[in-house]
Amino acid sequence: MIEEIITSGRMNPGIDPVLHAWGWEIPLYLFLGGISAGLLFFAALLSIQGKAKKYPVSVMWMPLAVPVLIGIGLLALLFDLSHKLYFWQLYTNIRWESPMSWGAWTLLFITPLSIAWILRWLPDMFPKLDLKYQLIYDLIDVLKKYEKSMAYGLIALATTLGMYTGILLSAFNARPFWNTSILGPLFLISGLSAAAALTAYFAKSHEEKKHFIKIDLFLIVTEFFLIVHLFMGLLASTAVHIEAAHMFLGGSYTVPFWVLVVAMGLILPGGLELMELRKKFIPAIVPVVLIVMGNLMLRFIVVSAGQASRWLY
């Protein structure tokens, strides 16, 4: 038996009795960052493949949401900062060892690039739109010329952003549940999956819808395997990692995770999408809402569970 008591009555707010450094702001920020990364990834990839006309919703329309989503995400991040007026210090340093630093820099580049991407497709989306100034038309011509370079840049930055949302957590070895490199690919795939589901829902042509449902099904299966690997890795590791895994295998996170994330966020919408492909009538909104909610819950649960897991001494 080991009994450990802090007899000096340490009750540092946010630290005791259990760590609560991050509330709703960080999971929301990671969720919106992941979806934005997914939407930009598909837009850029399909444009490089020369399929902008075939898949217009993905290439042109969905990126319209990205600056808004990133804006809300950054606002949530700003809410979380406890020394808000000093946020600009993020951009006076480049710290390669700190995922939060390269995440901040990635956002600094991807946000204007996503706006440039929207501007490039503006005349294609709204042919009758009068942009008034010749300068804007000249700028769009330049952007059209560099479309492929922009797309390659977006793929690199979107992948970095999607991975970063998970790596941010896995870099903290003080929290055993986060300390697994699977979180990077898991959050990337999960963000791509939500983006694919949303694109499938908003797609106008049957072909584009079908294409993105197929992509989403592949991503759902991949995400499921990554979750299995996450627990395999933790269970094969040290005592504290095994204990962290047990929070999800009988512990307090078991029901929320396996019901809200795996059953309702992956398996059920996956099944519904499969039925949709087989031309069974399914209200298209249902799988999308389930996938997006599952995505959000995954981040909330992972952020919370990481803070509940700790080294023992």
Partner: peptide, 20 residues
């Protein structure tokens, strides 16, 4: 004057030695 209060250091400390 450089700290933005992101709390990354708090979550990365295995000893819970920091606070806001």
């Amino acid at each position: 004057d450089e700290c933005i209060g992101c709390k990354a250091c708090i979550t990365s400390c295995p000893y819970d030695a920091r606070y806001v």
